[in-house]
Amino acid sequence: MPRSAQDIERIRERELRIVRAARDIAEQEGWQAVTVRRLADAIGFSQPILYRHFPRGRDEIVEHVVIDGYTELLAAISAGGEGLPALVTAYLAFARENPAVYYAMTTARTGIVFAADETPELLRQGFAMFERAVGGETPQERAVRAELLWSTLHGVSRFAADGRLDAALDDVRDGEIVRLFSAPASGS
């Protein structure tokens, strides 16, 4: 029997509440505190209801957090304006403001595939933003430059989150990243 629009909306709302609760617990207490039992208690649902929405349990919920995180990151980059400086600023700000979500996006083991035919379109779009920002004469050069920029931003984000970088140097550091990855002049 087909579900009504109200049923579909109720299901979607429950799923959003579950994912939001996972994010909130992770941001406050870390990912080790995010369990199906804890989520059920936090939102007032039984564990079987959570498993009905997310049959693979916590792993599937984390994957939803990861996809939501990339959606928000790409929106922040897009809203920040065009070009490499805006991308660098938006990326680092997102990582700083959403440490647990960023950790899940970049470190959690998930079934989400990167750099392959199965990569979700959202992630392909994000990588394309990096490629456009860094430029390059060939697709291979753009891809490598984008990977290196992403790796650099990830390293800076993780070191900053762990208190291993001088926050007073953030603007200078951002400027140096932009300088390092500015697109080379054609033919140079």
Rank of each mutant, 00 (worst) to 15 (best):
M1W: 02
R3I: 05
E9D: 04
E13V: 07
E13D: 15
E15Y: 01
E15H: 06
R20W: 03
R20H: 02
E27N: 03
G30I: 00
Q32C: 10
Q32R: 14
Q32N: 14
A33F: 00
T35N: 06
R38T: 12
R38S: 15
R38F: 12
D41L: 10
A42F: 10
G44E: 09
G44K: 07
S46R: 15
P48S: 13
I49F: 04
P55R: 05
R58S: 11
R58T: 10
I61R: 06
I61P: 10
V62P: 02
V62E: 01
V62W: 04
E63M: 03
H64F: 09
H64A: 12
E72N: 15
L73T: 04
L73G: 01
A75W: 11
G80C: 02
E82A: 15
E82G: 12
G83C: 09
P85M: 10
A86Y: 07
V88H: 10
T89N: 14
F94W: 00
R96W: 04
E97P: 02
P99S: 04
A100M: 02
A100F: 02
Y102D: 11
M105V: 05
M105A: 04
M105Y: 12
T110L: 03
I112Y: 07
V113E: 07
V113L: 01
A115S: 10
A116L: 03
E121T: 14
A128G: 06
M129L: 01
E131A: 13
R132G: 02
A133Q: 04
G135C: 11
E137D: 13
T138A: 10
P139H: 07
Q140Y: 03
E141D: 13
E141S: 14
R145G: 09
E147K: 07
L148P: 05
W150P: 00
W150R: 12
L153W: 08
L153A: 05
G155T: 13
V156L: 14
R158D: 07
F159R: 08
A160D: 14
D162I: 06
G163W: 05
L165R: 05
D166L: 04
A167W: 11
L169V: 13
L169K: 12
D170L: 00
D170P: 00
E176S: 14
F181M: 07
A185T: 13
S186D: 00
